[in-house]
Design a protein around this nucleic acid. Structure first.
Lengths: 225, 225
DNA sequence: GTCTATAGTCGGATAGAC
DNA sequence: GTCTATCCGACTATAGAC
């Protein structure tokens, strides 16, 4: 027989579980149809929850949207954390050579590409992310803040490699173009697949992309320039 | 007094005008709210047309969407055409030096950036474009076909500069990363503005971007690499 | 915490007059 | 070609029982 506390705990667990499933399904559907196009009915149906669970847990459809976006960036960052911590450790040594620094930077970008292109990053997430870039909503702040540590690391490394401040305008522009070279394989996937005659974006494709990016980053940051 | 033919011509003109206004407004609103979120009532209201004009001219809401996407790429290409024709003319000379070729390529990318970032390219257009990239609809084919000449030119030039075939896999990947370096300033505008501490994307900002891209493209395609 | 029932709004499409 | 009127389905949010 259950005590009152155990019953309450069980109920809470069930509630947390419902909340979680709603977040996951909502993220998928908001990405697919956009905020306006997404139907709360479809969300609760696929999540196996009741329609009124959305106002109950998230206040409103908009609250659910913001929570889903937050869930997405948290998950992305969690998968980027190991690579970032490794890089921070490697870079602590102040006597690293120019080419060693470039090597560590390329490793970090490799992992970044792997997270972006990997099967763990559903297309629908990217769509939601892209939409927030061009039409920021309340969710954009959460996205932006969460990604700041990552750009900081890149600025530090690029600045050090180029022998200029991490906050230098040129440094920041360079970081953005580095991002761009990786991101296009995500944001313009349809064009990439068509131009490359690829049917899917799997392991071999990721490898090819990583190789080209390494070549280009090395050339861009080479000492002669 | 008007003849029957003149009256008919006037009506046709009015019809064409309504059609045109619907296209322009539809493009803006589809970009802003997505296909599902866009309201035909809002479109006709802002276009000063009647609700039934959409089924009449475009068959359905979906027909209007495809027509609007087609209208967008036609307009973009029209603005890119002068630069492309100039480049094709410049590149005809088979004795161009390595650095001259790079120079012409940079000029083309400059114009590409100007079209992408310029005030003539509304944010909402980019959003529609981005959505089609990740969730292609019937409109994607029209977009894709229209842009093919542009990628062809880039493949030709990059291949020639690197001394390899225009259809080489490495050539195509290089072209994509070149695109990426420019496109990120469009597709991730919110992140760009925040990282650069820019309030808007005007003439000076465009200039700064063009300078960095020239530097990087030159480094990437330098003979030593 | 979860459910049913329902209110109130807005969506796209069509019929038919002019 | 343009308009009014209308159908009917889908939407979010809420009240209130359990």
């Amino acid at each position: 027989m259950q005590t009152a506390r155990e019953i309450h705990a069980a109920v809470s667990l069930r509630g947390e579980d419902t909340r979680q499933r709603l977040l996951e399904v909502a993220l998928d559907i908001f990405g697919q149809h956009g905020f306006d196009g997404a139907s709360t009915r479809e969300i609760v149906q696929r999540a196996g929850a009741n329609l009124t669970a959305i106002p109950y847990y998230f206040g409103s459809k908009e609250g659910l949207y913001v929570a889903a976006a937050e869930y997405m960036v948290t998950d992305c960052l969690r998968r980027m954390t190991p690579a970032m911590e490794r890089t921070l450790r490697e870079v602590q040594d102040p006597r690293l050579s120019h080419s060693e620094l470039i090597h560590h930077l390329c490793d970090l970008l490799d992992d970044f590409a792997a997270v972006l292109m990997g099967p763990q990053m559903p297309d629908n997430w990217s769509v939601l992310f892209a939409r927030e870039q061009m039409q920021p909503t309340a969710a954009f702040d959460k996205i932006s803040v969460a990604f700041q540590p990552f750009t900081s690391v890149l600025q530090e490394m690029v600045g050090r490699i180029l022998g200029q401040s991490a906050d230098d305008r040129d440094t920041r522009l360079r970081v953005l173009t580095l991002f761009g070279q990786v991101l296009i394989f995500r944001t313009n996937r349809a064009t990439v697949l068509r131009l490359m005659n690829w049917q899917e974006f799997g392991e071999p494709q990721l490898r090819a992309v990583q190789i080209v990016i390494r070549k280009q980053v090395t050339a861009i940051l080479a000492k002669s320039s």
